[in-house]
Design a protein around this nucleic acid. Structure first.
Lengths: 262, 262
DNA sequence: GCAAAAGTGTTCACTTTACACCCATGT
DNA sequence: ACATGGGTGTAAAGTGAACACTTTTGC
């Protein structure tokens, strides 16, 4: 939503287009310079940050909704996107007065006050999706109600609105559990990358250290990566070899669940 | 719901008590005689079977709703219950006319016809939970709209209503994946059990064979089971030893995720 | 020549797998 | 005594973990 008019439309007629009681919240993991970050937004009139999200259109499938929202927020459509949990327990989701107040702060910008039976003020369960993106590919789209965007390091997430901290915790748990079973990486790295880059990616996401030699052996043994006959120049140091993912083996491993990590 | 009156109330005023657009469907796995079965129900007036399920009350949390529904259907409250996915993609969920017709078949029993704006006829996403129960502990509760209950072997599931076959497939996948990471069994077996019983349980759920000797070694090495000084009489054969789960280690392994299986 | 980062192989310990014979029980 | 199912140990292979020195590069 980019104009006050669109926001008015959404508030007044959104329930015709979208399903009430349900939202999608996205934990967008971006990796950059050995740091794992999450995209947060700050709505107008709020101190607290929150996860980007959206609603499900009545005519679209749930998966379509998730991809649409992600593409809208990040401009990326070819990404790793995974539903991980549906949240409906938090006290913050059951307290309608609090929810109404939060919305009213936001929509004050367009001079709207929701009454307590407004569709946006109703109890809403949230379906959590997480995405893995190459940080540097993301061009965040400005929106009328969003004052600020920020990539926050996962070790530095502030207190968020609703139960969004809990959602992030669960997303991280799921991401790490899946990383132990499935190779993830082709979405977080450029097409050609160096071994230290994949290595750092895994160490960062999992918060553990891996022996460089063993790590390389494993990736090669699984056939996930292929060494190229090129190097990268990185200043006053030895030039690292470039590698690429072997996407055939990579996707086979995704499906079969290869134990990637040592 | 046990009377026509309660059903009327539900149809006419259910939207005051329950959240629309959302339901919970339960895949209840029961293990018996080396067979893994799923509890199915058949609504009045229908050929097709379906999964037992229910709606979320406006004032209760999602988890509370799941336990309430399970306890209501099976009479069991101490069970392993796990949310595994939320379904909102199937064409069967988007076709409102088909949904309306299905409901009308059911509620014909109480002489009700839903119009197309009825809350039950709206698009509904389903949050899938699976449960593991000891088959022999379940006393299925009769309900007014439910003609039949059946434990169906997982290799013999008929075509079900809506996308319930897909839900079962996903539940099985998740159950098996979790079984590889977490020990599950204390809910599917009596307190005291023999090694062949656990062994068969695992072979049945995972659809693989395990070497008896290695299987025992593994369970004992992980400290998950304890051998008792008792045997069971099983007719004209050697009496097998009884074991019990070491619940301390068992729950530690549940949390930490011990690689149980060979 | 030196500082910084990348490259590479071997050994040891442990875990997983494979495998076959004897024992207990009831009829 | 026999049919049926349960009990048990050992050896070989494979996998994971530990470990340190050399090479390249730019300044």
């Amino acid at each position: 939503m980019n104009t006050a008019e669109e926001v008015h439309d959404f508030v007044n007629k959104g329930h015709e287009q979208y399903l009430p009681h349900l939202s999608i919240d996205c934990v967008i993991f971006g990796y950059h310079e050995r740091q794992l970050k999450i995209l947060l937004i700050q709505h107008h009139g709020h101190e607290e940050w929150m996860l980007p999200g959206g609603f499900i259109q009545r005519h679209e499938t749930l998966t379509e909704a998730a991809y649409r929202i992600l593409a809208y927020k990040t401009g990326i459509s070819d990404l790793f996107l995974q539903q991980f949990y549906t949240f409906g327990d938090s006290a913050a989701r059951l307290n309608r007065i609090a929810i109404q107040q939060i919305h009213n702060k936001t929509y004050a910008k367009v001079g709207v006050t929701l009454d307590e039976n407004h569709w946006l003020a109703e109890r809403t369960l949230s379906i959590g999706y997480y995405a893995l993106v190459d940080y540097s590919n993301v061009v965040v789209r400005p929106e009328f109600l969003v004052d600020e965007y920020a990539w926050r390091d996962i070790s530095d997430i502030p207190a968020l609105q609703y139960d969004h901290n809990e959602i992030i915790d669960k997303a991280l748990l799921t991401l790490r559990a899946q990383l132990y079973q499935q190779p993830i990486g082709s979405n977080l790295l450029p097409e050609k990358f160096t071994l230290p880059e994949v290595h750092d990616l895994y160490e960062t996401i999992l918060g553990r250290r891996f022996d460089r030699r063993n790590f390389r052996k494993k990736l090669l043994a699984l056939g996930l990566i292929r060494q190229l006959n090129e190097q990268r120049k990185i200043g006053p140091h030895r030039s690292p070899n470039l590698y690429e993912f072997d996407l055939d083996n990579y996707h086979r491993a995704l499906n079969e669940g290869a134990a990637l990590v040592l």
